[in-house]
Design a binder for these strands. Structure first.
Lengths: 123, 123
DNA sequence: GGACTGTCTTGACATCCGTCAAAGCAGAGA
DNA sequence: TCTCTGCTTTGACGGATGTCAAGACAGTCC
């Protein structure tokens, strides 16, 4: 049985178009899983999920770190650590020294596309 | 006495309707984040992401453990461990002693709804 | 009933993760 | 330039996670 390496060995997560068919439509190849799993993992922490939401829902998809930090009972370094995790997962982008963080909706779109399930066929 | 901890006793993720507005539309409250983050976390491992895809894309959304195990270079107990993680996250359901696992598309729908982003406004 | 097959559970271990305290570093203002 | 403010990085620690080996358990077939 051939390994059947899909033509998307390296996934360009910066692209604006969904990269992959829904998870329930076609079996996710190992390479795709290896690339997308970290993004899900980054959203797998309640603090980061809230951070992501605060950034993405902010005006222009941008937020100031100074507005994010006081929203949690956590120290500054911890928030910075979580923001770094979101950054390394490609979910947010930072400018300058990180005072402003910007959401990258393209990644969210790809994750959403992967999770898309058709409406229940018969119930 | 089997432990069989009931998954997700807090919020009924079994509902078929999306529970939450998109992450980028409204800031996710802490309670919602605490409930949904584990589901993302469960998908945050490449093996589990592939397992989820194999189950959800199988005929009828059901798969046999005997078909899942040989697809990875991992031992049986490890696959069982990952399936348990998916089960506790409410992403899959198991019958009998777990020979058959069934996907729970409602949860995927909710996660997808949370990640939904409107198409780029101007480019 | 007895043995076999296949899955789950337990125990152990190395690694990763979330958190904080302390130190480093980049802008802003005087 | 100097200082002040605020974010990041580093180091450390407790807890969670991924993995495997060994044992336990439920169906199945004889």
């Amino acid at each position: 049985m051939p390994k059947q390496v899909a033509p998307l060995a390296i996934i360009d997560l910066t692209a604006d178009a969904p990269c992959c068919p829904p998870l329930a439509k076609r079996r996710v190849p190992a390479e795709t899983a290896a690339v997308l799993a970290p993004a899900f993992k980054a959203l797998g922490d309640p603090v980061r999920l809230q951070l992501m939401s605060m950034i993405a829902s902010a005006e222009g998809g941008e937020a100031c770190v100074c507005d994010l930090t006081p929203a949690f009972d956590l120290t500054g370094p911890t928030i910075s650590h979580h923001l770094k995790a979101l950054r390394e997962a490609g979910l947010v982008d930072a400018e300058r020294r990180g005072t402003w963080v910007r959401a990258r909706p393209a990644i969210l779109r790809q994750l959403a596309a992967l999770l898309t399930v058709e409406p229940t066929p018969a119930g």
